[in-house]
Each structure stands twice: as C-alpha cells, then as structure tokens.
Design a binder for these strands. Sequence first.
DNA 1: TATGAATGAGACTTCATTCAT
DNA 2: CATGAATGAAGTCTCATTCAT
Lengths: 200, 200, 200, 200
Amino acid sequence: MSEPTDKTQDRAEKQRGRILDAAQQCFIEHGFHGASIANIAETAGMSAGLIYRYFENKSAIILAIVDRQLQLLREDIRLNRRVDLAGEMVQNYGRSCTADARGMNAALLLEISAEATRDPQVAAALDHYDATVRAALVDWLTRGTASGGHGLPAAVAPERALLLQCLFEGLKLRETREPQLDRQMLASALRYIVPLVIEP
Amino acid sequence: MSEPTDKTQDRAEKQRGRILDAAQQCFIEHGFHGASIANIAETAGMSAGLIYRYFENKSAIILAIVDRQLQLLREDIRLNRRVDLAGEMVQNYGRSCTADARGMNAALLLEISAEATRDPQVAAALDHYDATVRAALVDWLTRGTASGGHGLPAAVAPERALLLQCLFEGLKLRETREPQLDRQMLASALRYIVPLVIEP
Amino acid sequence: MSEPTDKTQDRAEKQRGRILDAAQQCFIEHGFHGASIANIAETAGMSAGLIYRYFENKSAIILAIVDRQLQLLREDIRLNRRVDLAGEMVQNYGRSCTADARGMNAALLLEISAEATRDPQVAAALDHYDATVRAALVDWLTRGTASGGHGLPAAVAPERALLLQCLFEGLKLRETREPQLDRQMLASALRYIVPLVIEP
Amino acid sequence: MSEPTDKTQDRAEKQRGRILDAAQQCFIEHGFHGASIANIAETAGMSAGLIYRYFENKSAIILAIVDRQLQLLREDIRLNRRVDLAGEMVQNYGRSCTADARGMNAALLLEISAEATRDPQVAAALDHYDATVRAALVDWLTRGTASGGHGLPAAVAPERALLLQCLFEGLKLRETREPQLDRQMLASALRYIVPLVIEP
DNA sequence: TATGAATGAGACTTCATTCAT
DNA sequence: CATGAATGAAGTCTCATTCAT
C-alpha cells in the first residue's frame, strides 16, 4: 500500500534491464519466434513467471527492445559528430555480431525488420528509428563544413541520405552473411564511394 | 509397383511447385515460424499430410525455396544483360512486395537472411545465392563494353560489386519499410550514384 | 479438397458428442474452471489437442453444453404433456445427480447459473433456456383442461408460472444438498402445494 | 515474544474482517476460481503475502465466508421474528445483487452451492447453514400465533418449511437471472402462495 | 507486522508430424 | 496418391504460495 520507493523502482528497472539483455541475446540467437520465454528466463537467471511481472507479454519485450535500440541510437547521434563515416562503417563492421551496444546488432536489425512486416506496432517503432537516422544524416549533410557537416544543398541532401542509409543497411545485412569479409577491401570500397556521395 | 515414369515425375515436380508457391506466399505473409503447415496446405489447395510426401519437413521447404530462388536468379542472369542497372532497380522497387517472380521478394529476403543466421543449411544456400550474384556482377563490370560490360579492371571490380550488392540489398530492405517511397527521388539518387560506381 | 462427406461429418458429430459428454461429466464433477481440458480429454479418451479440432476453445464447450441442454429441454417439452407435475418432480428428484439426460443435472444448473453471472454469452443462452421453460409453463397453465392444461386465466398464469419455476429450481438446488431427502415427505409437500398453484 | 494481548487479537480480527469483505466482493464478481489472491489483496488494500498470515490458504477463506454468513444468519434470526415473510422476500429481491449484508448475496449463494458440490468442508458448512434456516422456519411455523408463529402442527411443519426454503432459494437463483423482474407481479405471486404454505 | 519479489506447477492452446483409411 | 484425424511436445501465460527484507 505504500508508494513505490526509489529503491524498489531501481530494482524493477534493473530487472527489466536484465530481462531485456537476456531477451536480446536470445532473439539474436534464435529469432523472435524461435526464442521462448523459458529461454529468456534461463538466460536471465530467473523463472519464466517472473518475466510477466515486468512485461505484459512477449511482444511487449520485443517492443521494449526496439525502443531501447532507438534510445541508444539517439544518444549515439547526440554524442557523435561522425566526421569519418566510411571509417566508422569499417570499424563497426562485424562488431555488431556480438551483442555490444554500439550500433544495432545486424541480426537483430534483420529480425526487427522482418517482424515489422507483420506487427504494426513494431513497424511504427522502426519507422521512428528510421526517421531519426534519416534526419541525422540530412542534418549532417546540409550543415556547413565549419560545424562538421558537408554543406550539401537542401535539394539533394535527402536523396544522398537515402543512398547512405541503403548502403549502411545493406552493409549491416552483409555483416550477417560475411562477417569475415576482408576489411581492406571494404575500407577501400567505402573510401571510394562515401566521399562521392557526401561531397557536393 | 511400377517404376516411376516421366509422367509421374512430372506430376511430382508440379506438386512440389504448387507447394513452394503456397509456402512462399505464406512465408512472406507470416514469416517462417508464423506460417503453419496447415496454412501452406490450405493455400496450396491440398491436405497437410500430402506435403510430407514431397518434403521431409518444414525446413526442407525453406531450403527448397532458397534453392528455387537461386535457380530463378541464374536463369535471370543468363537471359538478362542488365544494361541499365539503376533503371531496373527503380523499376523493380516496390514490385517485389507482391509475390512476383522478378527479383526476390523483399520480405522473403529478410526472412531468409534472418533464418540463415541460425540454420547453417539455409546459410549455405544463401551463400551460394550470394556468390552467384557477386560473380555475375563482377563479370558484368569487367567484361568489355563491346559485350555489354563496363571494362573495369579486375583489381577494383570486386569491391565495386560489393558496393552494388550492398546498395541493392539495402534498397530491398528499404522496400519493406517505405514501399511508397518517391520514385522520382529514388531514380535521381540512383542515376547519380550507380554510374559513379560502375564507371572506371 | 473434396467436400466433407456425410461419413466424415458423422464422425465429427460423434466426436463432438464424445467431447461434450466428457466435458459435462467433468464440469459436474469439478466445475467449469476446476475441470481442465486435459481432464476432459482424458475422460473422453483422446488427446487434449484433438479437442481443439472440434471446439475453438474451452468456453465454446461450455456454450455448447448449455445449448445442448436447451435442445434436450425443447424436445422434452414437445414430447411431454406433463400431466402430473408434482409427481414428476418427485420422480426426478435426486436422479439428475447422475449425468442422465432427463432434466438438467442439478450441479450443472448451478455451474451454468454461476457462470451466467459473469459471461454474457452464457447468460444469453441461459435466458433463452429460461424463456423456453416459462413459455411452456404458461402454455400449460392456460391451455384448456380438455387438452391437458389447467385453464388458468391469462392474467394470473405468468405469476403462477414464475412460482412454479422458482419452486422447481429451488428443488434442483436442494437436490445438490440433500440428495437423500425423504421422498415421502417431498411427495407430500409437493402434492399439497402444486395443486394450489395450478388450480384456478 | 509477547503474549497476544486483547488489542492484537482485536486487530487480527479486524484484519480478517477486511480480508473477508474483500474476498466476498471478489468472489461475487469473479467466482471462487476467477478471483485471485492478488485481486482480493488489492481490494482489501493490503499485500498478497499478508493474507496468508490470517488464512492458511484460499479455500480457508471460502470456508470462513460461509461461516461468517452463518453467523450473520443466526444473528438475523435472533433479532428478527419475520412476521411478513412474503413482504420481506419482495423487499429483498434484487437487493442482494449489491454486496450488502442482509440475506446472502444471490451470486454468492450460487458460488457456495456449486463449491459445496465438490468440497466436503464447504458442503458441511453449508449443511449447517441450511439446517439453521430450516430449524428457524419450523420453529416459526409451529410456534403459537400469540408469539408471532403460525401454530402449524409439528407433523406438517417440516414439509412446509421445505417448500418455503425451496421457494426462497429458487427466488434467490432467479434474482441472478432477472434482477429487473416486475416487483408488482412478484409481490402478487408471493402474497398468493406464501399464506397457502404457512396457514394450516 | 507487512511487503511484494520470486517460484513452480499447471492451465490453455498451437502445430509439426504421423498414419489409418 | 491423398486425406485429415490424431498425437505429443512445446509455448505462452496465470496464480497460489513462500520468503527475504
């Protein structure tokens, strides 16, 4: 009957985090539908029933993961001016296959994209994610070079942003197929194409 | 009792085709795990049990679909010289969301890619598919302009092919998210970038 | 793909019957919520999954049972002129505790009545049942004595029917509590009161 | 460490009361199986765990509720001479659907009666309740008119009491189905039948 | 005394797969 | 060859009950 204290809220948030971490790992490993709640519970080191104290149902977990990725992305964009897009793409390539926080895990992106095809809520969340990335790219392309941008005219920036996004996501997809792709070649290819896209 | 005649083999092949068509449609609509055998059977206009006369199990159907896409692709490559890659990309954009045969359906590509992450057999089949596309692109880029190619030196062709493939697949992924994307902008963007990639 | 034949329909109907019989028994024994699908399946001698080929879910079974009772009642009313209501009440008393078809089982009536308090669909079906009984009673009370009725004026028949129905159901309820109630006393009591109710 | 003082006992009794009130409300609303401990706890404004300090388990709560109803009934009988049974029946009709204390709530009676069919302890408690009502009725019917009774001979009183009880409970059952029943008609019907039952 | 997080059993339900017909 | 009834395993979810705090 007492109001929830900060301490219990903290604990709850921590538990939610544990569950999401476990879920993300399981989803990457087995996919949204291949991963069972029992699976996630075991990975999180708790009983299956307990998960339902923190999430209404399985699809709420999926949504929470998409949302969390969106938060991470936003923070990433806020912190990061991305001066060297090509270099960063190469750097991150193959890294996301482990479940680290930097950039979205490639397999997870696939899973989410596939699910968005069917679940409108996931689609909406993904659209949101998408729009955020696009806006950041356009901003970066149009901003003046003085402030770290590339001074592209507003008329062409959207289409260049689209290209970059396709390239970026195509690369993510490729990560899942050729995680061992020769970095040298990748670097060379990107260093060739990215400047062509972002220079006026 | 009788040896399998050509006629019965034909019939068998036709049945397999019916099943694969139905399965493909169901997989696109509900995903590999969301589509049930009962679903597929109903779509194919046959009983669930009959499917097991033609396929060992559900994942055999998935494999067969990847294989069939590979066949279709090969035939496509054999017939098609692809003189205008950018134009074709725009033309096909958004089309694959309906279950036509030209190019792989975007949602299906997602589904298969995600599944390849877990099932090594699917991964192998997809690698095969992948390599085929890559080889065709490299061939097309290196072949002389006289025979419809672009005469790129062998040293840079692979990396350009990689770029094209990423772009192409990134575009496929985008199809699932923005099927209504402005064709004008897309055409403009591709007409700008593709020549830069394929011209020496 | 062939149309369902009479034979398969027959079988289906027989299976539905088996399931309903088993369900009725289980519901009487453990209540709607105490009886599990596994319970019913075991009683019916089949697997739990099979039940879902014949009924969409558990509450569909409940509804089907209410409906079936209604059918039985209708048939009973059609066949039966009920000349000796009091006698029949005594005769049936205590019989319904076994799951026979004659009159509704007392425990089942309780269960259904309780469920109707919460589930509007059950309530609707029960209302239907209720109205059928009431109409039959009114008809019987108003019909001329020549045709087996009691020639009550239409003005008082409804309230007498209400009394009879209350008495009848109160007696059902009592059956569950005192199945061994002295029949002599019961007969004596009913023979005293019922004529007072139905005679003008 | 300290012996239970009167004060702590009082508090305990008050807590039990709170729990029973909440439980009764929940049971009426959702049934014994549909009402969860969490439900009851929330309604009672306490934690789920605390309930187990006052009741061994859920069915102990059910038993306690039946017992409490019995207490209330006893008190009611002691205070109340019930001069006008029919009038009171009409008065109370439909009232019990709200969770007041006067007479047993109709839905609760159903729930308890149904449960008594399965749980022998509930059956025993209900029998006790039943016998108390019956005895009071018999007493009232046999007592001289001078002391508010009806002076029925002891030979017929039990069967008349039985009739009254059936009528009374049948009416309760009806309350759950037709809470809006026309009071005029009900009054008219009862005024007709009740005197016939209780007059010699 | 009181909380509410945690568990474990068990409920309903779905579905790939088999097999008698 | 073809059907679809049947099974059994597995999945999602709920809830009575316990227990550390």
